[in-house]
């Protein structure tokens, strides 16, 4: 059984595996970097650590004006950093192998696979892609 956290970015619903997530925080003060690309909102003071916050709508190319108040702090192996998202959904459990054969023509590069949940299509976010996209944003 895989525990997944679905969340909404722009008009799409994505999900991350719970194992990749350290904590969910809301309404924390985000301190802006002096000069950062717009994909990087700033950083939060999280348990005594400076943790950068990535604006996921921006990173995925949504023209979101909204300030995303909900932050998903990823596990320590990711730095860690936090992803700001528009909305969170309740956790869901999926049996192993829940992702159908991936039709690579359909999916976005940042999606590991797509699955159906209660008449809705949810995309499993590919964190490797996210990391690579952040790197590109930081260096340019």
């Amino acid at each position: 059984m895989n525990q997944l956290l679905p969340f909404v970015v722009g008009t799409e619903t994505y999900a991350l595996e719970l194992i990749d997530i350290q904590e969910i925080v809301e309404n924390l003060n985000i301190y802006p970097f002096p000069a950062a690309p717009e994909q990087i909102s700033g950083a939060i003071a999280f348990h005594g650590r400076i943790v950068p916050v990535v604006n996921l709508p921006h990173l995925l190319g949504f023209n979101a004006e909204s300030v995303c108040p909900r932050l998903i702090v990823l596990a320590n192996k990711y730095g860690p950093f936090a992803l700001a998202v528009d909305q969170l959904r309740p956790l869901i459990g999926m049996e192993k192998g829940f992702i159908k054969d991936d039709d690579s023509t359909l999916k976005q590069p940042y999606v590991r696979g797509v699955f159906a949940w209660r008449e809705e299509m949810i995309s499993l976010l590919d964190l490797k892609y996210v990391e690579a996209a952040i790197e590109t944003a930081c260096i340019s």
């Binding site: 000069a35 790197e135 930081c138």
Partner: peptide
């Protein structure tokens, strides 16, 4: 942590 240390203008942070 990398790659955030590449962001120009910033040497690091403190609380």
């Amino acid at each position: 942590s990398p790659p955030f240390d590449q962001i120009p203008g910033c040497h690091g942070g403190t609380i």
